[in-house]
Design a protein around this nucleic acid. Structure first.
Lengths: 234, 234
DNA sequence: GAGATGCTTCGATGACGGTCGAATCGTCGC
DNA sequence: GCGACGATTCGACCGTCATCGAAGCATCTC
């Protein structure tokens, strides 16, 4: 007799329509109900039913803006659980060249809720560990004095990040690389700043894939000592 | 268009009967089909159907011994995914005093597939980080020179652990503590040795709860500098 | 070999839930 | 205000799947 029951939440994720919606929300961007319906290939009524269930279960949150209602994942732990499930899901057989390219792109760089994942995410975490920016700490990682200076020079408010009601810096196991990338407040803030600076561009609205720009290649090397090539996925 | 589909695996976990079976297998012990049927409260036929589905999906593995067939989780990543799901599952309302005690016990010490979790698991990881036994490394943690000596003195073959086809030492987010405990080859080996030494006893066969013994209190303090009390859950 | 035990396969049944059409409620633009 | 648009609620339909009885198969005991 455990005190939690896995089944209800898993059952919710287990419906193909809802899974597609959650996957789209892993991009980190709030999406309107109609957009999610279109992505999942169902009518607005059906989508609305599913979204209500997901909201009641606490997996997603909703914000009304005019006549639109924007949905997003309820939190980082939801994203982590989805990635953990992806890790044990068999690869879907690739049918088209376009799908294959899309899969490659996802593996190279994508968002996982609000932080960077894929080859790029793993490489960045490796560089931060090797460069004495991060070290082990309570609840996962912590910034070294060196790291604190570097991150603040990058334009982030480290003290402000600590006050948030979420973990400061922690690993998140990557389902394509099977090694961790950086999550938590620090991971999210760095990712947001990189996107603002144009180091990565979103490939398609509402999806998770990112493209590393030339500016990003330079920035990652200069700031974090992380060497990546943008050519890897065309 | 992602290249994996979360829905099939999540749907499997989403059935209450299968979820109960998987939860039981999180104890790390291989369990016979009949035992799983009894734990889940279904007939042998029904259980067999479910176990076949889980096996086909690669979530569990089976080993025949005589006329018994013993099932176990297919790997560490499956355990991680189950724990990640537990993390976002709402707490089941506690109805009886016995359930409440059982829940407390699970929160204090339990196995997560093959390594230690709960308050005790988190405390042990904290002590290992504070005691310069573990440090950040590729894919999670690595042993320091100090740590290597300590673990070998504890009776484990560190070189042998590295050759395994699994991660060496990595964090696994704990759903009761919401902070990581130690997983990977090192976590599993230390946990196995602790159980062999009688530092923890299983509360009920086939379930995950552990009880910290007096010998365990002493051992944890002496070997790992980890101070815990056995009285916390009676 | 005969009986017992553990597990799986087959077939039928019944319930749950995903779907969409139609209708309702809110908000925006003119 | 009035029509258009986005979103939700309601009701009915229908397919899917969990369940168990019965039968079949393997293994152990005597």
């Amino acid at each position: 007799m455990s005190d939690v029951d896995l089944a209800p939440v898993a059952r919710l994720i287990g419906d193909p329509t809802r899974a597609t919606m959650l996957d789209a929300l892993l991009s980190g961007r709030p999406l309107a109900a109609g957009e999610l319906a279109r992505l999942a290939g169902v009518t607005a009524q059906t989508a609305s039913t599913h979204l209500a269930l997901l909201r009641d279960a606490g997996l997603i949150a909703v914000e009304a803006q005019g006549r639109h209602r924007y949905y997003r994942l309820a939190g980082e732990d939801v994203a982590t659980a989805l990635e953990a499930l992806a890790l044990i899901s068999p690869d879907r057989p690739v049918r088209s060249l376009r799908q294959s390219k899309s899969a490659q792109a996802l593996g190279y760089a994508r968002t996982c809720y609000d932080h960077l994942a894929g080859v790029a995410g793993v490489a960045l975490l490796d560089a931060m560990l090797a460069g004495d920016v991060l070290c082990s700490g309570r609840g996962g990682y912590d910034l070294t004095p060196t790291g604190r200076g570097l991150v603040e020079a990058f334009g982030l408010d480290v003290a402000g990040l600590r006050t948030r009601h979420r973990s400061f810096a922690r690993p998140c196991l990557d389902w394509t690389e099977r090694r961790p990338h950086l999550a938590g407040a620090v991971g999210a803030a760095i990712t947001g700043e990189m996107l603002d600076r144009g180091w990565f561009l979103r490939r398609r609205a509402g999806e998770r894939g990112l493209r590393l720009t030339d500016r990003g290649v330079g920035g990652l090397a200069d700031v974090f000592g992380c060497r990546l090539s943008p050519a890897a996925t065309g």
